[in-house]
Design a protein around this nucleic acid. Structure first.
Length: 581
DNA sequence: TCTGGGGTCCTCTAGCTC
DNA sequence: TCTGGAGCTAGAGGACCC
């Protein structure tokens, strides 16, 4: 282990939620939850405001809604997050060529290898500058950990959260780690944590005292040795810039369990094709085909088959997946299916034939493959996805809060503007078109795309809206703190109507609807506290009313059935109590 | 309450060959 | 010829991470 804290770990704070807050001023300071909005969705990221209410990652969305009924629930926009992530990674590469991304929002940097830092002082300077640069370029905050090893740098960044910097001075590591819980150490999850607790080990110090042999006996060779080393603050792993993928897989969880064997087969074929699309997109082929089945009772089975040589041939992979499915009992229903390929290789000689075949689009089955019966027909009307960026010829840039019953509700604001106003249009309003996300900052290195100048909406959202209902109402007194819905018990309607979301999240079926609106009642109402009929056009994510895979779910149908109205609506986060422009 | 998606790594077991 | 052990690989499942 080196003598200076020159390994940096960056962890962006509540990344997905922060990006949404940065791009939507009306959500700033509010509880925002990003994740799959279907009935089986889970939370990907919660803003710190939502965390205060007990919402955290990996929590079932239904539970999050109970804890934070007034939060804004949004589907992830991975394209946007990837763009922001690339900006952050570029800043990291200015520090060193040795950058090891762990995910979109997290990376290690070897500052010493880049000549950026050689001692405590220079490392701290680099960390401070990095945080300032990230804020300038993206408008977001990140937490930085600095230490002499990867493990310690990661622990340090965790301690620095949110929006801080922690440096662990060499020589102080063991004293610092000692009283911490074993769960602090990377690789100790709930199962290992429980296992150790039953053995009377709950702190890192106790872990070190237990001794290596005991840990190996308890946890097995690899885990035991590794954990003992970590307990002594020993970690020699280098920062590795390039890591090769070992497997490629796709999987879908279905809103409703699939019982029909024929349909299970068709879904597996569809997943196999998607997997091939990914595989070819990465220029890879693989030898081992893996089928994953999660049954109605959440038990998970995998079946695999290793071929003689690597392939990216959709026919071969489809057939292998079908063979594997034959060995699985699906009576009782399946909730998840997945197809993966491991044993990856670059193209081999025998794959030349496969290479000559047309490349599959990542998400589309090859021609000739029967479409699964679950595919929904395209609705005749235009679809607007909650959270989607749009532009109106008159009002400028905004984002879709929800749609349904032939209407779409848009909040007109940009990352640089104050919270904007909400207006409702017909879904096929020719003045409304989808738009690219705007840059989160006006940083000169990343000039705005030129759709709507920052702040323009503030003055360009006049009351005389010919095509739209003018939703502006006297603000009136607020009913209370952010926690409550607006007066009138704001509700939303037609959640199902705003379908078609969620594909980009990779949750093919967990198609939720974001901040929702669309009932007649929402027209002309801003959903603002104090409005006489504030019907909660904002903030709601569809109440788990995802557009399901099952046609019986009424996919794509806007609902006007009062009984189907979601239990919650939005108030706090969604804008019911956001500041008025 | 009811648990995503996309990965990596590890352990255990069984079958095969020498 | 039979048997047992070592070493290897494949297959299955679990734990963990973000």
């Amino acid at each position: 282990m080196r003598n200076a804290p020159t390994i940096l770990h960056l962890d962006m704070d509540a990344f997905f939620a922060s990006v949404e807050q940065a791009s939507k001023p009306s959500l700033r300071g509010k509880a925002v939850v990003v994740g799959g909005l279907g009935p089986r969705g889970v939370v990907a990221t919660a803003s710190y405001e939502a965390r205060v209410l007990g919402v955290h990652s990996a929590m079932p969305m239904a539970q999050a809604r109970r804890l934070a009924p007034n939060a804004a629930y949004l589907v992830p926009r991975f394209m946007l997050y990837r763009t922001i992530s690339e900006q952050v990674m570029a800043l990291l590469r200015e520090l060193s060529p040795l950058v090891e991304p762990l995910s979109l929002d997290e990376a290690f940097v070897d500052l010493e290898a880049g000549g950026t830092a050689w001692d405590e002082e220079s490392a701290r300077r680099a960390g401070v500058k990095l945080r300032a640069d990230i804020r300038a370029v993206t408008g977001l905050t990140g937490s930085v950990g600095l230490a002499a090893s990867k493990m310690l740098a990661k622990i340090a960044s965790e301690q620095a959260k949110p929006d801080g910097l922690t440096l662990i001075e060499p020589g102080t590591e063991r004293a610092m780690l000692g009283p911490m819980t074993v769960r602090t150490l990377p690789g100790v999850g709930p199962a290992t944590g429980d296992h150790l607790r039953r053995a009377g080990i709950s702190t890192v110090e106790e872990l070190a005292e237990a001794g290596e042999d005991e840990l190996v006996r308890l946890l097995g060779k690899a885990h035991g040795h590794a954990l003992y080393a970590m307990a002594l603050a020993r970690d020699e792993r280098p920062v590795v810039a390039e890591r090769e993928a070992k497997s490629v897989s796709v999987e879908d969880t279905y809103d409703v369990d699939i019982h029909d064997r024929l349909r299970v087969g068709l879904e597996v074929q569809r997943l196999a094709d998607r997997c091939v699309g990914r595989l070819r997109g990465a220029g890879l082929s693989g030898r081992t085909i893996v089928l994953k089945v999660r049954r109605y009772d959440f038990s998970t089975l995998t079946r695999s088959e290793t071929l003689r040589g690597p392939t990216d041939d959709p026919v071969v992979i489809r057939e292998a997946a079908a063979r594997l499915l034959e060995s699985v009992d699906t009576t009782g229903g399946v909730r998840l299916l997945g197809v993966g390929v491991s044993g990856l290789a670059d193209y081999t000689q025998e794959d030349l034939f496969a290479q000559a075949m047309p490349v599959l689009p990542a998400e589309e089955p090859e021609k000739g493959v029967p479409e699964p019966v679950v595919e929904r027909p395209e609705p005749a009307e235009r679809q607007w996805r909650a959270g989607q960026d749009v532009r109106h010829t008159e009002y400028g840039h905004g984002w879709v809060q929800g749609s349904g019953l032939g209407r779409v509700t848009v909040r007109f604001e940009t990352p640089q503007s104050p919270p904007g106003r909400v207006r409702t249009f017909l879904v096929d309003d020719p003045a409304l078109e989808s738009a690219d996300p705007l840059p989160l900052t006006a940083d000169p290195r990343h000039p705005p795309a030129g759709l709507a100048p920052p702040g323009s909406d503030r003055h360009e959202a006049p009351h005389q809206a010919p095509a739209a209902s003018d939703d502006a109402r006297p603000a009136g007194p607020r009913p209370g703190p952010d926690a409550g819905p607006p007066a009138g018990g704001g509700r939303e309607a037609g959640a199902d109507g705003a379908s078609g979301i969620g594909r980009e999240a990779g949750v093919g079926r967990s198609v939720g609807v974001g901040c929702e609106a669309g009932a007649d009642r929402s027209v002309g109402v801003e959903g603002e506290a104090g409005a006489d009929r504030s019907v909660g056009v904002e903030g709601e994510a569809g109440g788990g009313r995802s557009v399901g895979a099952e046609p019986a779910e009424g996919a794509g149908q806007a609902s006007s059935d009062p009984a189907s109205l979601p239990k919650s609506w939005s108030g706090a986060a969604g804008g019911g109590v956001t500041s008025r422009p």
